[in-house]
């Protein structure tokens, strides 16, 4: 693929951006929070059919929606709904938001579980579909920019609907969603920081005037661009290997990206009175998911060259 949007894709992106523009600001009362989920925006994107783009148009179009949504400082759950659900349940939708849960870690806290109406549980070969009711999930306090929660009582998976053989697809598209969300947040955080260094003056000049700042921001831009293209390629190709490469590249570069972006926002960048953490704390959360960069690297090594002592663990 060569990333040139066709007319339909460009129109889709423009429509999503128009909705986000009107609803993506963090209310003053929530600016000191670590995470702000916008349920109204979630509803709008869902009712507008944007989260069905993966089913109606294709996975690349779904990735475009997820990418745009991830650029907003407010949170909406798009990755699982738009990219994962259509692949594991091609013929039907699920009540969203949707949380993705590793079956082996059922007792741990999971991303988006407190806002989810459905959880897809990775059981290895199969996937369990767990409908959530109020009280099923206990929120877990976190400084990450996603809501985290754990099951109040572990769900009885033997009574849950089971999608036989859907496990590999779930894990593959989870990684595509992860990389795409990462790409959107990385780009937005970079743009936010670039704006900041143009406005913030030191020694009589904008901070962004200095090459020591410019060169590292140029690297951040390069990283964000690389993740975006790799994530879109993974959505377009549908290849598991491409999904692993995208997520590995993203997670391997997360630390540098987060550090530099905070550094250039100066002291404001280490407070939560600034918007930056709404994106960078998402990057921090995403860098650890799905086995992290090390796990992704060993998975890729296993695919490419076979074997390896840590391969079995990394496949989980």
């Amino acid at each position: 693929m060569d990333y040139q949007l066709n007319e339909d894709q460009a129109a889709l992106v423009a429509a999503v951006q128009a909705i986000l523009r009107d609803h993506d600001s963090v209310p003053q009362s929530a600016r000191l929070d670590f995470c702000h989920f916008n349920g109204d925006l979630q509803h709008l994107l869902s009712e507008g059919g944007f989260l069905d783009a993966g089913r109606d148009l294709g996975p690349l179009e779904a990735a475009l929606v997820v990418f745009e949504a991830a650029r907003a400082p407010v949170l909406v759950e798009a990755g699982a709904s738009a990219l994962v659900v259509p692949q594991v349940l091609p013929g039907e939708g699920l009540a969203g938001p949707v949380a993705l849960v590793t079956g082996d870690d059922l007792g741990k806290a999971h991303r988006n579980l407190p806002i989810a109406r459905t959880a897809l549980v990775d059981l290895g070969d199969d996937v369990a579909v767990v409908e959530l009711a109020p009280g099923d999930v206990v929120p877990v306090e976190s400084i990450l920019a996603y809501p985290y929660g754990r099951f109040a009582v572990p769900p009885d998976l033997s009574r849950a609907r089971r999608l036989a053989g859907a496990g590999p697809a779930l894990r593959q598209w989870w990684r595509v969603a992860l990389a795409t969300e990462f790409a959107g947040a990385a780009e937005a955080a970079t743009v936010f920081t670039v704006d900041y260094v143009k406005q913030r003056h030191v020694f009589g000049k904008p901070v962004g005037t200095f090459q020591a700042v410019q060169h590292r921001l140029a690297q951040c831009h390069q990283i964000a661009m690389g993740v975006r293209y790799l994530a879109f390629r993974a959505a377009w190709s549908g290849q598991a290997r491409d999904a692993d490469i995208a997520v590995c590249y993203a997670q391997a570069h997360a630390q540098k990206l987060i550090f530099d972006l905070h550094q250039f926002n100066g002291a404001m960048g280490v407070t939560n009175e600034h918007l930056l953490h709404f994106w960078t704390y998402r990057l921090r959360a995403l860098q650890a998911e799905a086995g992290g960069a090390h796990g992704a690297a060993l998975r890729i090594a296993g695919h490419l060259w076979g074997g390896g002592p840590a391969l079995r663990a990394a496949e989980v």
């Binding site: 670039v194 000049k205 921001l217």
Partner: peptide, 9 residues
């Protein structure tokens, strides 16, 4: 990159 892509001064 800084000057033309990021529009930094």
């Amino acid at each position: 990159i800084a000057e033309r892509a990021l529009n930094l001064p």
